[in-house]
Amino acid sequence: MIELKGVRKRYRGRYVLNGLSFTAEKGNITCLIGMNGAGKSTVMKAIMGLVPVKEGQILVNGKPRGRWIYEKISFVPDHLTMPLSMKMSEGLTFMADFYASWNAERAAELMRFFRLEPGEKIGNLSKGTAAKYNLVLGLAPNSDYVLMDEPFSGIDLFSREMIADVFSSDLIEERGVLLTTHEIGEVEHLIDKAVILQNGKAEMEFDCETMRSEEGKSIVDVMREVYSR
């Protein structure tokens, strides 16, 4: 379980996260929902230790975070994080070099699935291909959690379908996924749990299935309610 307790983060004199608390469980797909600038990406960077957090606690499997979490959590940002001069195969070698959790077989399998050419330079990838390559890097390790920042934004239809296929595959099944998106409709059917961010807090945290069956509301309905308050 990834657990945030009262996390506060200042950015340019404003609290982007202001006492944020929520959890993301293994085996669930949790979606962070919020308007642009609500701090969705900041939450992911905070979990990954890419931005310092002074107040609050971030626990992974009940323990405070340290560099051991990088074997447990993979992060798929919405842009490339490998040097553009590298070939895709070199990027995979780099990952294999540093991550004990790296699963080379699965990486090769994913490369084939997304029809990526290992010899191609990372700098030459189109946005959609880059997103697929990012998914390879994020899903190949045997990690417990995967954080995905806007995995569908700006990607063509066919690529989206491919990525969506991955979500329903066993690549995701066992793990905990935390993803952000601002186009909720696209992924609504995939999501187990939603966290609505507003004013730096988790305005609402709910199980989508329960919400649908008990109150008959879709995520978008709940969002409307929250934002119109």
């Binding site: 990954m48 230790g49 992060f75 842009h79 490339l80």
Partner: peptide, 17 residues
């Protein structure tokens, strides 16, 4: 800076920073 921010990767390596 640039299209690829390798810093994300370097800072989330399991080895010491």
């Amino acid at each position: 800076f640039g299209r690829s921010t390798f810093a994300y990767r370097l800072l989330s390596l399991p080895s010491e920073r």
